[in-house]
Design a protein around this nucleic acid. Structure first.
Length: 708
DNA sequence: TCTCACACCTTTGAAGTGG
DNA sequence: CCACTTCAAAGGTGTGAGA
């Protein structure tokens, strides 16, 4: 069964359209990274203390490399305690890495847990200070080149353009989504590490935090925070970037993995009691709220029971009539139900499922999570025995351990973890394995499914669709991930699992959000570069993926957004300029205060059009586009039309100078595939980049001399 | 719908203890 | 020196009142 599944991998490739970077080489990218051009890379920003810090989970290894690079070629000039403007020298030390074939597979850990949550419409609490995800996003990687180094990242992108409300015990669409917050990439703190190291353990992103605090755009509250909108749906994504140091990140091979069962709706307070109960029952930190044990909830219940009893007794005395026991039982029962969401809303079967009766539940419940009556329908068909074993291991990882047995527990985890690494590669959830009955669909209750897109599972299009997809995988399913109708062709998905380069960009999968998030980070970068007289993006190549898809007007929201953005428009996902200056994102660390950081930034002071660039664009290379065109015949026809419009309307194109044209050509010509690009191409790419950067450097110098 | 203080809990790391 | 235990601080939870 697992062999029939496809990895949910989106194999984007090459520096030319790396998701985190514009069509530039390492130097250019580094410039942006270091804060000169703000937020191309949300996880990276400059510190407020003059030293380079990397918001998010950048570990010391990365820091060391970055700082080393700074000493050897990258120049920083501190703006007080604000963002340092980094102008760059060509990084001569960067050589294209020798390509060794790898075939990464990613297995979502705690898959059953995720599915259980997802089945009920997962909610994730977001707070001002940031709240962890639960279940934690953990993956296991296989198929990596043992000796090659990889950087693993995670981000969370909007899953659609809807705002939701919880009504009648269901999540329903409540209108258009609010403007997206700037997102940041979360780099796993162990990055970079060898494939062997990654494969030897579970990659855990538990430190990533979710917040709704827009003033934390800089990661000042917590560098691990990612800003989400409450009552919006999001999709975590996992990226593998093959790079042996952070400097190569921008132009390294990357792959993006999306697990549909990990999507969730961000909330500031739990709406769904079932989810609350699930979290309580599975999150060790919420142990105190469990009905079992001596937690607060139990105490409260007992307290209440006592008061009820005393009240009843008092009533008896006052009335002089003895109420029969049934009355008391009834009242108690009633109260019991009221005090227990699990009982009142989930019902006995589910309660039994959710609540492990004792402490062991912490350790074992995750793996042994007994789903309710419908659990058998969950797509655990992709799970084999080994997976179950893995799931049991997960339990230990979620579960608490007493402090005394910590070391033992730790050792046991390690042991288990190593055992897990032998497990079969990821088997991806496909809707073909999901029965439409598995999940309650709001749309079933709401005839106007078009207006109110269901968040139910059945409306999910699997990222790995097989040609034998079940009939219910209709267009409506597809558009959730921004797939046009014709997108589910076999050829397309053959690329996913096959050895062919898969040149479709991540943004073409899911998400308007995906694009907007990343693009929002690119805006200032693009703007800054543009104003500096250096080329902006190659609009032709940038637009290509969209062009290959369909016309903007006929596109689903996601693709429209993509199209517009890839044309360089400062297009908010919702029709206007992005409400938050992109500048805020990057300079992140840069700032003790947002305002000062912006004002003092030489590039940010200047009035310039806010341009957006799609980090996910696929350059218009012949092989790429042809691939895409082949895969999506229905969209190809509108490509040319789009291209024309896009070029005409793009502010980028309007601001291009001669330099930019050159740049555009060069950048457009280096659409490389991780699988197809030759070393020669890479070298050419680097050379062209270096030429560009030489120009950029001088221009930036000029710019700096003007700016304070 | 959101924020905050709160109690309860786990996790983590340092210090202490004994073999 | 090592393994183990104890302890305290830090930090992760959902709750519920109030805005």
């Amino acid at each position: 069964m697992s062999f029939l599944m496809r990895d949910p991998v989106i194999q984007g490739t090459s520096m030319a359209y790396h998701p985190f970077l514009p069509h530039r080489g390492p130097e250019f990218a580094m410039s942006a990274m270091l804060g000169h051009h703000p937020p191309f890379f949300p996880a990276l920003a400059l510190p407020h203390n003059g030293s380079l810090s990397l918001p998010g989970a950048l570990g010391k290894p990365i820091m060391d490399q970055l700082m080393g690079a700074a000493e050897s070629g990258l120049h920083f000039s501190s703006l007080g305690h604000q963002a340092a403007a980094a102008h760059l020298r060509p990084l001569k030390t960067l050589e294209p890495e020798e390509e060794v074939e790898d075939d990464p597979k990613v297995h979502l850990e705690a898959k059953e847990l995720w599915e259980t949550f997802h089945k009920r419409g997962t909610e994730m609490v977001i707070t001002k200070s940031g709240r962890r995800m639960f279940p934690p996003f953990k993956v296991r990687c296989t198929g990596l080149d043992k000796k090659a180094k990889y950087i693993l990242l995670m981000d969370i992108v909007a899953a659609d353009d809807c705002r939701y409300k919880f009504h009648n015990s269901r999540w329903m669409v409540a209108g258009k989504a609010d403007p997206e917050m700037p997102k940041r990439m979360y780099i796993h703190p162990d990055s970079p590490a060898t494939g062997e190291q990654w494969m030897s353990k579970v990659v855990n992103f538990h430190k990533l935090k979710l917040t709704n605090n827009i003033s934390d755009k800089h990661g000042f509250v917590s560098s691990s925070n990612t800003i989400l909108n409450s009552m919006h749906k999001y999709q975590p994504r996992f990226h593998i970037v093959r790079a042996n140091d952070i400097l190569k990140l921008p132009y390294s091979t990357f792959r993006t993995y999306v697990f549909p069962e990990t999507d969730f709706i961000a909330v500031t307070a739990y709406q769904n009691d079932k989810i609350t109960q699930l979290k309580i029952d599975h999150n060790p930190f919420a142990k105190g709220f469990r009905d079992t044990g001596n937690g607060r909830r139990e105490k409260r219940k007992q307290l209440a029971l006592q008061s009820i009893r005393s009240y009843e007794e008092q009533q008896k005395k006052e009335n002089g009539t003895s109420d029969d026991s049934s009355g008391e039982q009834a009242s108690l029962k009633c109260f019991d139900q009221a005090s227990s969401p699990a009982v009142s809303t989930v019902g006995p079967p589910n309660l039994k499922d959710f609540c492990e009766s004792d402490e062991d539940s912490d350790d074992e419940s995750n793996g042994n999570l007994k789903d309710g009556p419908d659990s058998s329908k969950i797509s655990t068909t992709t799970e084999d025995g080994k997976d179950r074993e893995a799931s049991q291991t997960k339990g230990h990882q979620f579960g608490g351990s007493d402090s005394n047995g910590r070391s033992r527990e730790s050792a046991r985890r390690t042991e288990k973890s190593q055992a897990d690494s032998r497990q079969s590669p990821i088997t991806v959830i496909s809707s073909t394995t999901r029965s439409g009955e598995d999940f309650k669909s709001p749309s079933r209750d709401q005839p106007k499914a078009d207006e109110c897109r269901s968040i139910s599972k059945e409306n999910y299009m699997p990222l790995t669709v097989q040609t034998d997809s079940s009939p219910h995988l209709s267009q409506s399913h597809m558009h959730h991930f921004g797939f046009p109708p014709g997108f589910a062709g076999q050829q397309f998905f053959n690329h996913l699992g096959g050895a062919h380069p898969f040149l479709l960009h991540p943004s073409q999968f899911n998400m308007g959000g995906a694009f907007s998030n990343m693009a929002s980070g690119m805006g200032p970068l693009l703007a800054a570069v543009s104003s500096a007289g250096v080329s902006t993006m190659d609009t032709a190549s940038m637009a290509s993926p969209s062009q290959s898809l369909t016309g903007a007007h006929g596109l689903p929201f996601h693709l429209q957004q993509h199209v517009l953005a890839s044309q360089g428009l400062a297009m908010s996902p919702f029709g206007g300029l992005f409400p938050y200056p992109y500048t805020y994102m990057a300079a992140a660390a840069a700032a003790n205060s947002a305002a000062s950081s912006v004002h003092r930034h030489p590039f940010l002071n200047a009035v310039r059009p806010r341009l957006r660039y799609s980090p996910y664009s696929i350059p218009m290379s012949v092989p790429d586009s042809s691939l895409l065109t082949t895969a999506i015949p229905s969209m190809a026809s509108s490509a040319a039309e789009l291209k024309g419009d896009g070029m005409a309307t793009s502010p980028v194109s309007a601001t291009l100078d001669s330099t930019s044209e050159v740049t555009s050509r060069s950048s457009g010509s280096v659409s490389l595939s991780s699988k197809t690009c030759s070393g020669k191409d890479s070298i050419n790419e680097l050379q062209s980049i270096q030429r560009l950067v030489s120009g950029l450097d001088s221009i930036q110098d000029r710019s700096r001399s003007v700016s304070p």
